[in-house]
Amino acid sequence: MQANLKLKGLLVITLLPALLLYSFFVIIPIFWSSYYGFFEWSGLGEATYIGFQNYMEVIQSSVFWRSFKNNMIIVAASVFGQVPIALALALMLRKRNWFQKVVRSAVFLPMVISTVVVGLIWGYIYDPELGVINAVLRAVGLESWTKSWLSDPSVNMYAVAVPIIWNYIGPYLIIFIAAIQNIPSEMEEAAMIDGASGWKKLIYIILPNMWTTIKVAVVLCISGSLKAFDQVFVMTGGGPAESTEILATYMYNNTFLVYRYGYGSAVSTMIIILSLILIGISQLLMRRKNG
């Protein structure tokens, strides 16, 4: 009995610090923001209860939905950029010699670079005067293709997506390489005996065996892209004229630049709801195809 009490005390003492810290900073904010979404509040002074007004304003805001659309562009760019590139590279990187290791390291390297630095460097790369992209275009005689990549609304959202693709290919590559190495070697040998090599082996043996991993990668890609903020914030801040606004920059600009904490809280709540819906849908789609 005494030992039991001692054990209970131990459990409480050991679990409490982590549990409190985690609840206070990760879980409670979600409820706090959905609550403050019902108030008009400048951050200072009294908050006034205004019912669903903030939430209605978010839902009716065309900029909010444009931000959502821009977020979807990043999601699509990641799914159709990162996954195929990583898959193609993984198929070429199946050996463990030094050359292939160097390639792997190079592809993974951007993962450890500060996202602020990533945003700043790519800002320079896109610079209309000094940037390397326009310099290359001029050098090969495609002067007419040069653009101010980050301010031209017809291309800037795609331009913003490229550094994000560049930044996060690494983990997908590693996941795919591991999946290829997990394919039973008997299967490949059997295929060889049957005379399947090259493309046939790829289509009939390798890809079907990787299908589950590819689906996991797509789900990761979707939830990862919804977290984008830093690079976009540093490169464009959501501008010019809100053309590269994504949900997170929209929330930031509407809270901390104009001091509308109530509205910002409502936007935060909407971001959580939309993210959970998207993650839910993607999980569901993946599961159905599994069955």
Binding site: Y22, F24, F25, V26, I27, I28, P29, I30, W32, S33, Y36, G43, S223, L226, K227, F229, A248, M251, Y252, T255, F256, Y261, G264, S265, V267, S268, T269, I271, I272, S275, L276, I279
Partner: peptide
């Protein structure tokens, strides 16, 4: 409960954390 935390987009906690810590 701990697993849930990985689903929450960090930037959606900015406003509440700012006001709470304030």
């Amino acid at each position: 409960f701990f697993l849930l935390g990985m689903l929450i987009p960090i930037h959606s906690t900015l406003v509440p954390l700012f006001t709470m810590m304030n």
